[in-house]
Amino acid sequence: MTFPAFMEAFPALDLPFPDDVVTTRAIRSDAGLVVFFTFLKDFELPAHAHKAQWGTVVEGEIEFTIGDETRI
């Protein structure tokens, strides 16, 4: 999926993943952070933890596990 030019102009996050695997575009305010991830290849993200977050898949699918429950 191609994002509109104004979104492509958002800065990328500095993540420890190769740019040919995942790209990001982010916009930050005092209210929070919005990040658009584009996964260019199948990718297995190492197990990790963070505070609550909300997400939606715009195109494709993702398999994720929270605790002992895995969903697609």
Results as ranks from 00 to 15, higher is better:
Gln53Ser: 13
Leu40Ser: 03
Asp20Leu: 10
Asp42Ala: 15
Leu33Gln: 11
Ala26Leu: 00
Thr70Ser: 10
Val35Ala: 03
Ile66Asp: 14
Glu69Met: 12
Leu33Ile: 10
Gln53Asp: 12
Pro16Thr: 06
Glu8Lys: 08
Leu13Arg: 02
Glu61Val: 03
Thr70Gly: 05
Gln53Thr: 07
His48Pro: 05
Ala52Leu: 15
Asp30Val: 13
Thr23Glu: 10
Val22Phe: 04
Thr70Cys: 06
Glu8Trp: 06
Ser29Val: 07
Ala9Thr: 05
Phe64Arg: 05
Pro46Asp: 04
Phe17Pro: 04
Thr56Ser: 08
Ala52Glu: 15
Arg28Met: 09
Ser29Asp: 05
Glu8Cys: 01
Met7Gly: 02
Phe10Tyr: 11
Ala52Gln: 14
Pro46Trp: 12
Glu44Ile: 11
Arg25Pro: 04
Ile66Asn: 13
Lys41Leu: 07
Ala12Met: 04
Glu69Ala: 11
Val57Asp: 00
Asp30Lys: 07
Ile66Glu: 13
Ile27Thr: 11
Glu59Ile: 08
Asp42Phe: 10
His48Thr: 09
Phe43Asp: 02
Ala12Gly: 02
Thr70His: 02
Thr65Lys: 00
Lys51Met: 14
Phe36Gly: 10
Met7Pro: 02
Asp42Ser: 12
Thr23His: 05
Gly55Glu: 14
Phe64Asn: 06
Leu45Trp: 14
Asp19Cys: 00
Gly67Thr: 01
Val57Asn: 07
Phe36Val: 14
Ile66Tyr: 10
Glu69Gln: 14
Arg28His: 11
Phe37Gln: 04
Pro16Trp: 03
Phe37Lys: 02
Phe10His: 01
Leu45Asp: 14
Ile62Pro: 01
Phe10Asn: 01
Leu13Ser: 00
Gly55Ser: 08
Ala52Met: 14
His48Trp: 11
Ala52Gly: 11
Asp20Ser: 11
Asp19Tyr: 00
Gly55Phe: 15
Pro16Asn: 03
Ile62Leu: 09
Glu63His: 14
Phe39Ser: 00
Val35Arg: 00
Glu8Leu: 09
Thr38Gly: 00
Ala49Glu: 15
Met7Trp: 09
Ala52Pro: 02
Gly55Val: 00
His50Gly: 09
Phe37Tyr: 08
Ile62Asn: 08
Ala47His: 12
